[in-house]
Simulated scan of single mutants.
Amino acid sequence: MVEFERTLTLHHPLPDVVAYLADFSHAEEWDPGIVSCRPTMADVPVSEGVEWVSVSTFCGVRTGLRCRLARLEDQRLTFVGRNRTATSTDDLIFRRENGATLLTYRARIEFHGLARLASPFLREEVEHLGDEVADRMAQAVDSHFGVGGDSTG
């Protein structure tokens, strides 16, 4: 299993940030590994249990992942993605701080089968991905709502 955690300060209202990030189809904008991300059912409102199919590249390998919104709360989102080689859990915890939104983003990837043997060798790549996600997420939120100031923290 490999993990990363990043904390970001986003200069936009917490409910708006949560609503934007709860729609996982926006992950194309903030996750540099995701090539495409589409809901499995059209015209379904974002709610717990909704699923998306994403295509991503990681370490040069293109793979599909079925992602489900496992938790949708006012200050917390959890997405669980699965395919035959891995289960990824993205846990986003939000809180208000000085008029901004403080986001703690935790990602965990658990590899299955033979892919599990590669886990120790992928830690550096996952850490690098964590840095890129944090940078791109702040930029995507700013682009979506309009720049609200310095959004890295």
Rank of each mutant, 00 (worst) to 15 (best):
P13K: 06
V17Q: 00
V17W: 00
A19D: 06
Y20F: 12
Y20M: 08
Y20A: 04
A22E: 01
S25R: 07
S25E: 06
H26K: 02
A27V: 15
A27R: 07
E28W: 04
E28Y: 10
E29W: 00
W30H: 04
D31I: 03
P32H: 01
I34E: 02
V35F: 06
V35M: 11
S36N: 08
C37H: 02
C37P: 00
M41Q: 10
A42P: 08
D43R: 10
D43M: 10
V44R: 11
V44W: 05
V44A: 13
P45A: 08
V46I: 06
S47L: 10
S47D: 08
S47T: 08
S47K: 11
E48Q: 14
E48H: 08
E48I: 04
G49I: 02
V50P: 01
E51W: 06
W52S: 04
V53C: 11
S54D: 10
V55Y: 05
S56I: 07
T57A: 12
F58Q: 13
V61Y: 06
R62H: 13
R62E: 13
R62G: 15
T63R: 14
T63Y: 15
G64T: 08
L65E: 05
L65S: 08
R66H: 12
C67G: 04
R68Y: 00
R68K: 14
L69P: 10
L69K: 07
L69F: 10
A70L: 03
R71S: 03
E73S: 06
D74H: 09
D74M: 09
Q75V: 14
Q75Y: 01
R76F: 00
R76I: 01
R76E: 04
R76N: 03
T78H: 08
F79R: 05
F79S: 06
V80N: 00
V80Q: 02
V80T: 05
R82Y: 09
R84Y: 07
T85N: 09
T85K: 10
T85Y: 12
A86T: 06
T87S: 15
T87A: 15
T87N: 15
S88N: 11
S88E: 09
T89R: 09
T89K: 09
T89F: 07
D91F: 04
F94I: 01
R95M: 12
R96Q: 13
R96C: 14
E97T: 14
E97H: 15
E97D: 13
E97F: 15
G99A: 15
G99P: 15
A100I: 04
T101I: 02
T101H: 02
T101C: 02
L102H: 03
L102E: 05
T104R: 01
Y105W: 14
A107L: 12
A107Q: 11
A107H: 14
R108W: 09
R108Q: 12
E110V: 13
E110H: 12
F111E: 03
F111V: 03
F111D: 03
